[in-house]
Design a protein around this nucleic acid. Structure first.
Lengths: 228, 228
DNA sequence: CTCGGACCTTGACCTATATCAAGAAAACGC
DNA sequence: GCGTTTTCTTGATATAGGTCAAGGTCCGAG
């Protein structure tokens, strides 16, 4: 049963025991999307949520003026679109595959029924939503209180946490995408990267960035210090 | 049993049947706080969440430079601090009473046990978190994509939804507080209110604001139109 | 190899909004 | 009711960052 094996790879279902997985596998569906294809659009009716099995998906908002703001980029094992599942009737943002991807779709109603029987599932979902909420609280804080250099520094330090040994991080997306993730535009990001490099805080090499002075970057990220 | 009656007034527990309320009343505590008193601080250990029985509480972040950004203001019936309950170990923001208030505290562990027995509770909590998430998605969108006049217009329209009959809204907080809620500062808010009034979009009278031209305000809020 | 397109960088300019400073108004205690 | 304090408004100024425009670099398709 391919779906069942897939489910095990999802962060959210990790650690569930076999019988629960069987229960889920009975109603979870899979969907493949091509690079650039929309998974859902802002405002679409929402009767379930998704998880990435393989590939990469971005969640973003669009302003009437056409500017985009990426809220999130998700890779294998991560769930998305769950924000609206239990109250909202519509997805609150756009989702688009950044590369050819395979997704799992978990429909709401059968999930609710499963949860009513297996509180374990509901508690897992609560944890997932709590984490997501924490992520947004941090984002709101950064957008409202901090300047772009601080947000960039925070992002670089966060990236490094995935490989704490190394001083070098690889950008997980194109620079233009990163700009909209940080709530800015490519030109500004480019200038700030240059300023960081001028100050010897980082060294640039295409999409690889070496953190030369993590301490100062951290001070920047927290807002204690400003970039000259 | 006073606590039990209190619980019924909370949005989150509304509609639960009596036996469930009894279950909750057994471990929910109440706490009274004076005006200006901190309920919890950013980074405090978090082993439960709160709800407002009477009074008003604001949730806010603070930048190292000392600027504040209000994330939320909660009144009677609303829950807060639930963001971190199921995953995070710490509160992600500050909470402070804006006036003398009476609060309910729902400790995590007994709640989890109750949920394991009563999935109904967990589903309610999922709904609550979903709504909160939606709120943050909207906030991130506004902060990243929109200018202050748009955010203000959106806020005014939102306020009016509470009394759709009337064209006049009453600010639920001091103007300075509203400024930090919108991610700006009092001076800027004051100027923009004046500009809106100059454009005949609103009429100002202390904390009462009459929406003279909701259609244009809506266009402003969505970003389709800009303020001259 | 080389053409074309996507992406990135750089520069000149402009606008929104923060900062600083001072005054006006409103709220509050006595 | 009056002075004090807090809140709000207004003005002058500074600056971060967005916009527009022009190159530059990299990479894949043919």
């Amino acid at each position: 049963m391919p779906i069942r094996d897939d489910l095990e790879t999802l962060d959210f279902f990790k650690g569930l025991d076999g019988s629960l997985l069987d229960l889920l596998a009975a109603f979870v569906q899979t969907r493949t999307v091509a690079k650039g294809e929309a998974v859902f659009a802002d405002g679409d009716a929402c009767d379930g949520f998704y998880a990435v099995l393989q590939g990469q998906v971005r969640i973003y908002k669009m302003s009437p003026a056409g500017r985009e703001h990426i809220l999130h980029v998700f890779g294998p094992g991560e769930a998305f679109g769950e924000v609206a599942v239990f109250k909202g009737l519509r997805f609150p943002a756009h989702a688009q595959a950044l590369r050819a991807s395979r997704l799992a779709f978990i429909p709401r109603e059968p999930l609710k029924r499963a949860m009513a029987r297996e509180p374990e599932l509901a508690l897992g979902m609560l944890g997932l939503l709590s984490l997501r909420l924490l992520h947004f609280v941090r984002k709101v804080e950064e957008l409202g209180l901090k300047e772009v250099p601080a947000r960039l520094a925070a992002h670089l330090l966060l990236l490094r946490e995935e490989h704490p040994e190394s001083q070098t991080v690889t950008l997980d997306m194109a620079k233009g995408q990163l700009a909209t993730y940080l709530g800015t535009i490519p030109e500004t990001l480019s200038r700030i990267l240059k300023r960081l490099a001028d100050q010897q805080l980082i060294a640039l090499d295409g999409h690889r960035i070496t953190l030369l002075d993590p301490a100062t970057l951290a001070a920047l990220a927290s807002g204690e210090e400003r970039l000259e």
